[in-house]
Structures are given as structure tokens and as C-alpha cells.
């Protein structure tokens, strides 16, 4: 199971970084979304993986590590805020430069 998760994290990160390196804003937004999946999962698994042991006191004898979960929870919400900001920024950039190239100077679509 660990190998599956680790490979999924690695693939998510690789796809995210690759898309982030592309020249158009939309690809970068997608890339960042994937990258945040990867990082959220990464932080999450730092606590080790448990099945059927949610961090609720009294629900199970042993429980999953709650701290990474708390960290990731806010990270997911902040990630949404960041994605939204980025999307709006790229819309504005396109309106201002007539291009959705990240450097603004690419050939107009």
C-alpha cells in the first residue's frame, strides 16, 4: 500500500511540475492543482497510514495521526483560495496583454 501511495504522490508531483513549466496560464493552474494534491497527500502520509482508525477519541483503540490531517485540511481550503486567485489573475492578465502566455508576450491566440 505504501508503494501505491508513494508512487501516486510521485506521479502527481511530476505531472504537476511538468504542467507548471508550460507557457500558458491554464496549464499552470492545472499543474498547481495537481502539485497541491501531491503535497497535501505527502504531508498527510507523514503521519503514517492507517485504515479504519479515524482520529476520533473513543472510536478505535489506535488512531491515525491527527496533526498532519489538521495541517492538510487548512491547506486544502487555502489551496482553493490560491487557485481562485490564480485563475482570476490569468483572466485579468489575458485582458491586459491579449494573451494567456505566462510572460504576457507570447503570440496572441
Amino acid at each position: 500500500m505504501e508503494l501505491l501511495l508513494a508512487s501516486a504522490i510521485g506521479l502527481l508531483a511530476a505531472a504537476g511540475v511538468y504542467l507548471c513549466l508550460r507557457a500558458r496560464t491554464f496549464a499552470v493552474v492545472l499543474g498547481l492543482t495537481l502539485l497541491s494534491y501531491a503535497v497535501n497527500l505527502f504531508v498527510f502520509v507523514a503521519g503514517g497510514i492507517r485504515i479504519g482508525q479515524p482520529p476520533i477519541v473513543g472510536a478505535a483503540v489506535a488512531m491515525a495521526d491527527p496533526l498532519p490531517q489538521a495541517l492538510v485540511l487548512t491547506a486544502i481550503v487555502i489551496g482553493f483560495g490560491m487557485t481562485a486567485y490564480l485563475v482570476v489573475l490569468s483572466i485579468r492578465a489575458r485582458a491586459a496583454t491579449a494573451s494567456d502566455h505566462v510572460d504576457g508576450g507570447g503570440a496572441p491566440p
Binding site: 508531483a13 511530476a14 511540475v17 503514517g48
Partner: peptide, 29 residues
């Protein structure tokens, strides 16, 4: 470059998951 990043992050994740370590959150619990 992307593959190297993926390898790094995935490898570290695998390492972390399979190594027993102590957690600070026992106090939280």
C-alpha cells in the same frame, strides 16, 4: 526535471511511510 521532482517527493513519501517514527501528536490526542 518533472520526473526528478516526482521521484524525490515520492521517494521521500515512501521512506516516511515505511519508517517508524515518533509523532508529536500524542499530546494533542
Amino acid at each position: 526535471i518533472a520526473a526528478a521532482c516526482g521521484l524525490g517527493l515520492g521517494g521521500t513519501a515512501w521512506w516516511m511511510m515505511t519508517t517508524a517514527g515518533s509523532s508529536v501528536s500524542s499530546e494533542h490526542v
